[in-house]
Nucleic acid binder design. Structure first.
Lengths: 227, 227
DNA sequence: CTTTTTTTGTGATTTGTTTCACATCAATTC
DNA sequence: GAATTGATGTGAAACAAATCACAAAAAAAG
């Protein structure tokens, strides 16, 4: 329990999400097959990159024929274990927690928040479709629903403590919205979402852009950024 | 306007955020100076990495003496243009928008949401401290407050349209919470925050962890991930 | 049925990032 | 004040990721 909490998403996995978003859109538009360069144009990566990423995840297309969108999406379902539902718990029903509990996109992707938790008994009365429990029932619910992944939206002061508790009860992955570096054993997956950092980095690059005289060094600036 | 919307945060910049978070914590604890390995231990990177990152941003320490926390934090303030306040607008007062408008950490870091906007006149009555305007007043407010950065929390169906409008009125950077790939000219900074993807990637790695027999290939798995 | 075209899939190459290793400097010890 | 110690800072080496370039396959054309 001595170390770190870094490591998040591999770039290629991030891009797979990107491709999938495109594929879903294209499918809705009635398209049935894509070529690597279709996805490339749509997502702003190169077509080589698309194929390399696919090859990494063992996704095969048809020589000359491109990729069948349905087959691709199915493959990706498999990659993301979409077959079975994933039960999630959400801890902390402050502003952010409440918004997350109402976020319908999770359920659309078979990620179900089965219960939310808060220490504040007032919050426990809040209605959002999903039950709000007291922290004392955490273990019971985690066991009952076989929950492995949690969303942590508690104040930073209690984040570490709650994380420890979650992990003790069998949680293996946490999306952490508290701006703290959780210290956990390396066999627990932590994905930090730091809203301030996200906003701040945009400000950083905007300021940088404004300083670049007449867009001349724009290319140079862009080389500084990553997907 | 033909292109993409990728590129976000450089890894070294992300780590600078990390270091800063640590420094703030250490300062609160009364610590006055740090060594590269202090930060390294605390953040889970190597001390070489810390020094390389600092060197990239032209941050110098004292041979043998380490780094003075106050000086470091000041340097970082400069990097992030913390001297002046940054005015932000927030578009879309749904669940997520509302939560973001109440998120006090932005203001603590001198990022002020000066106004929020929504098409729904009912939302415009919602009180959250920050005024909620109709979209028709967007240009006026952006001009008045010299806003350069926006948070986009509208439904995905209208995200592109609103983004275009924002950019037309002079917005240069957007934190986009809608799960769409915005198509913008390359001199606009877009930082996508996709909540589903964040959750889903954790599920992905947790499943992967569970398949790894007896933690034997854990090291292998970890090599797959990134800071 | 042969040739051409088009697109995939993947080694080879290039580019970028992290780690290593050590020269350099400043504080401390003797 | 010389010698030792403990840190930084940075080129060099190792590693990782992205791009290039082309062989292979399949469809289409002749």
């Amino acid at each position: 329990m001595k170390q770190i909490t870094k490591k998040v998403i591999k770039n290629s996995l991030k891009r797979i999400f990107l491709y999938r978003a495109c594929l879903v859109k294209l499918k809705l538009m009635g398209v049935e097959k894509v070529f690597s360069y279709t996805l490339a144009n749509e997502t702003g990566v190169t077509s080589d990159q698309v194929r390399k990423d696919f090859s990494e995840f063992n996704i095969k297309g048809n020589k000359r024929g491109g990729y069948d969108i349905n087959v691709l999406l199915e493959k990706m379902e498999k990659i993301f274990h979409r077959s079975k539902d994933n039960n999630i718990v959400l801890i902390g029903m402050g502003n952010m927690g409440l918004a997350l509990s109402k976020y319908s996109k999770f359920a659309q992707r078979n990620m179900n928040i089965v219960a939310t938790f808060d220490i504040d008994p007032f919050k426990q009365k809040l209605r959002s479709g999903i039950p709000v429990y007291s922290m004392s029932r955490l273990k019971e619910i985690i066991d009952r629903f076989g929950v492995k992944v949690a969303i942590l939206a508690v104040p930073e002061i209690s984040a570490q403590e709650v994380a420890d508790e979650l992990i003790r009860y069998g949680i293996m992955g946490i999306v952490n919205f508290a701006p703290v570096l959780l210290k956990v054993s390396p066999d627990v997956i932590i994905n930090n979402v730091n809203l301030c950092d996200e906003l701040e980095s945009v400000i950083y690059y905007v300021h940088k852009l404004m300083k670049v005289d007449g867009l001349k060094n724009l290319e140079l600036l862009y080389r500084d950024m990553k997907y």
